[in-house]
Amino acid sequence: MSTPPESKADYVYRVLLDEIRTARIPGGTALRAAAVAQRLGVSVTPVREALRRLENDRLIRYEAHHGATVVDLGDEALEEYYGVRAVLEGLGARLAAARLTPADLDSLRALHESMAADLARGRLTRLGARSLDFHLRITDIGGPAYLGQQARAVRTSVPVPAAASLWLDPVLAARQLEAHAAILHALAARDAATAERVMIEHVRQAGRHRRAH
């Protein structure tokens, strides 16, 4: 069965979502529908539809006399965000310890080794996206019916500015990979409590770094 063509509204939404999530459009930026339409070569109607979807995602808000503005999160919101992530992803790791198959473990190890190779070669810009993949794979294994979907929704709701990514610092990136290795070791040993504990601390460390930047 062929995939239906992407609508203009879907296209605008996809582009803006990526730009907001990667902070190429930073928090506090006003989004003018006419300007976005001109930049992306579409009419204003699909832009307005895309903006409504982004508002439902809580990535933008409408303010009187200002229109649509990208949400700029403060320290309290970031603390809450990383707290929710720690709970969800920690639970995902706990459940995954009992559910993962040998094939799952091999796949996670291959991803980890590939990330280590990227770090060794100085390909730091690839690590953030691959870390996201690592985390979501574990959550999907632990909670395929519900938890993985919720983890994705939380991740989508908060953009990560490039300057706040600890994966761009080789020393910090090495420490994060050590945490990934410890999580893998716990999963391989079916040690649910340790897998959860290490994952929670790993996520909280990312939150502390983010708030510092």
Rank of each mutant, 00 (worst) to 15 (best):
L136C: 10
V171N: 13
I200C: 08
L132T: 12
A179W: 07
M199A: 12
I200M: 11
P159E: 07
G143K: 06
L95T: 02
Y81G: 08
M115Q: 11
H180W: 01
H112Y: 10
A181S: 14
E80G: 14
S157Y: 07
R130K: 13
E80M: 12
D191C: 03
V160D: 09
G142S: 05
G148Q: 05
Y146W: 12
H135Y: 11
L108W: 00
H180Y: 04
D133C: 10
P102S: 02
A116W: 07
R123V: 07
R109S: 14
L177N: 00
A163D: 15
L172I: 09
R123A: 13
A97V: 03
L105Q: 00
A182S: 09
P170Y: 03
A153Q: 15
M199H: 06
D169C: 07
T156N: 15
A151G: 00
G83H: 01
A153P: 02
Q176T: 06
A181D: 11
A192N: 14
D133A: 10
R190C: 05
E196V: 04
L147R: 07
A93N: 03
D104F: 02
G142L: 06
S157M: 11
A116F: 02
A98D: 13
A189Y: 08
Q150R: 15
R85I: 08
P144N: 01
F134T: 01
A151K: 00
S165C: 13
L147A: 12
L168D: 07
R190S: 11
H180L: 04
E196F: 01
Q149K: 10
P144M: 01
G90M: 04
L172S: 06
L136T: 12
R123G: 04
T194D: 09
